[in-house]
């Protein structure tokens, strides 16, 4: 319909934007987590009422609403199991990527949650159920970001 109309005369139109830029805070629990990554540590927290370990840690247990405090944090070992993975060939605009990005969901040992991040191995070396560990950026380049972890790699 629109195309047919268009052949007769140009449709009057306007270009506009929804300009949005945001400044996000990591939050109380998020900051604890990111400061841990900066030190090369995984900090999780435990809800004793639900016997559940959250990674990343939360300010509260969403199941029972208990407040999870600084002292409920515990460091977990840098080791987990790959639950699932994919390699993505397109970027967010639908353009073909030269090198596919590989992402996985990892269950870190001692936690009850999934953790999503990039996988560093070659596609042919990846399998569900394999043991993985995080590779941290060199200390001087860590700045308290999820990208202080470069990605996860297979442990053999």
């Amino acid at each position: 319909m629109e195309q047919k109309e268009n052949r007769k005369k140009e449709i009057i139109h306007f270009f506009g934007q929804l300009p949005v830029e945001s400044l996000y805070t990591a939050g109380i629990a998020g900051e604890r987590f990111l400061l841990g990554l900066k030190e090369g540590k995984f900090l999780a927290n435990y809800c004793p009422d639900c016997d559940f370990v959250f990674l990343p840690p939360k300010l509260y247990c969403e199941f029972c609403f208990r407040e999870l405090k600084e002292e409920d944090l515990k460091e977990i070992e840098n080791k987990g199991i790959l639950l699932s993975y994919t390699f993505t060939h397109i970027d967010t605009n639908g353009n073909r990527l030269e090198n596919p990005i590989i992402v996985g969901v990892i269950k870190m040992n001692g936690t009850d949650t999934g953790f999503v991040h990039k996988l560093l191995n070659k596609i042919e070396d990846i399998e569900i159920g394999m043991e993985v560990e995080a590779v941290f950026a060199p200390k001087e380049r860590r700045r308290g970001s999820i990208n202080d972890i470069v990605g996860f790699q297979r442990i053999d």
């Binding site: 805070t25 939050g27 629990a29 998020g30 300010l59 509260y60 407040e67």
Partner: peptide, 15 residues
């Protein structure tokens, strides 16, 4: 400007 995330603000009020 709150340091808390929106979720954390919601939690404090709800609790």
């Amino acid at each position: 400007r709150a340091k808390e995330t929106g979720k954390e603000l919601a939690y404090y009020a709800a609790k």
